[in-house]
Design a protein around this nucleic acid. Structure first.
Lengths: 231, 231
DNA sequence: TAGATTAATATGTACTACATATAGCAAATA
DNA sequence: TATTTGCTATATGTAGTACATATTAATCTA
């Protein structure tokens, strides 16, 4: 008889289905043959016959790749490889309610890390329009009376920063992560705030108007201090 | 008659298949009913009947969710919700050869941003063991004679940093992104290197041994300077 | 030759059938 | 009685057939 301890070590067999294998093989096929976006891939029936599985299974595998934006299907032309959307997979599961609180916290940390490190992209790609937008947001925030308006400005300010960074992938990352953050903000608001960031949005904008990238990271760190303390 | 320019703007109708709709509805169902990990979801046939589609279509949709780690199927118990793996979607498509060069560059920028902003997590979670590991790597790098060995140390050094940060999501992100970076490094090596980072790994470790988080971001920026210049 | 018509074809959907694993229960064993 | 073993019902996994639909490509017509 085995002890409980021993039994615990036996992990359940990861039941690999046909669809899993076909998916994997298709991925290999694409990589090995270095199929380029725009190139066509074999018909469903050809794949099914080649792999000795039913068309059903092949379709499940293809359906997955289609979801990730790796392939597109046309009614008669068959299927072609497309440029996969890096963020499509994330997009689907990053809903706060289905994510564990710990994962949400980790994602929030990720955001803090990103914003502190954003400086160089910002200085490299800032434009007069962007700076003007930031000025306007700071101005609006200053005049804001309700806390809703202030939060709106807060969100817009940081979103504009990501916009300014001129990195599409990063920007989408931020957009996807946004709803997750709301939860964390709520969570943090229940803790006592021991301190308040001493660097304001206005201070950050002033730095961005200037020409000293060195000043940005630590200014942002000061700005985010209340969050960083909760790490 | 429309001009070519105008025609280009006309995107192909995103032919929404049944599987797409079922997938979307299932996602809504899970969120709206706030199903928790471990809870079971309806049987395939029940879903099919409820939505008035064939079991086939339902299975395609479920197959997608299963791929993202949102659900698991047991032979008789039906299907249960699981904690989705945030990075599973990324993992599948982040192969250098199928990613556009521009996306790869954006991901590399993302890495630079992350490493510059990593400081606070590092100082918060550093341990004696981690610092020792870094010391060892720096030592090994110093003694290294071949460029292969030096590159290995380079990779290990930065990997250890992510390890030190104590953020699983971030760590996996880095692991997934690694192969993408290799391509960019190759790309950059073809450009003339106008400068070399003046801050070495040893310098970074020295800062991490200390107690001044302020010093980290700009030190890392200096270290990554050769890459940052190519932005 | 230009335009309309038709045939061929690959994907999308539906349905049936059966294999397989297993949860839950009944029977057997100690 | 408690535990194990075996059975049965059931939900998923796979296979195969059939047909709808859209679109390319060939064919026909004026």
């Amino acid at each position: 008889m085995k002890t409980d301890q021993e039994l615990y070590k036996l992990k359940p067999i990861a039941s690999v289905t046909m669809a899993d294998q076909v998916e994997s093989q298709l991925r290999d096929y694409i990589i090995k043959r270095s199929i380029r976006p725009g190139d066509s891939i074999p018909k469903e029936m050809e794949i099914a016959e080649a792999l000795g599985v039913s068309r059903n299974v092949v379709r499940e595998a293809l359906s997955r790749l289609r979801m990730l934006g790796m392939i597109e299907s046309k009614k008669k032309r068959g299927m072609i490889l497309t440029q996969p959307d890096v963020m499509k997979g994330l997009e689907r599961i990053l809903h706060p309610t289905i994510l564990d609180i710990n994962v949400r916290k980790e994602l929030f940390e990720l955001r803090l890390v990103l914003e502190v490190g954003l400086g160089d992209l910002l200085f490299k790609r800032k434009t007069a329009e962007h700076l003007q937008q930031l000025d306007a947001i700071v101005e609006r925030e200053h005049r804001a009376t309700t806390s809703i308006e202030r939060i709106r400005c807060e969100v817009e300010f940081h979103s504009t920063l990501y916009e300014m960074a001129g990195n599409e992938t990063l920007k989408r990352f931020q957009t996807i992560l946004m709803p997750v953050f709301e939860y964390v903000v709520e969570y943090e608001s229940k803790l006592e705030h021991t301190s308040v960031g001493t660097v304001t949005h206005a201070d950050l904008v002033k730095i961005l108007h200037g020409n000293k990238p060195d000043d940005f990271p630590n200014a942002m760190r000061q700005h985010l201090l209340p969050h960083l303390e909760h790490l």
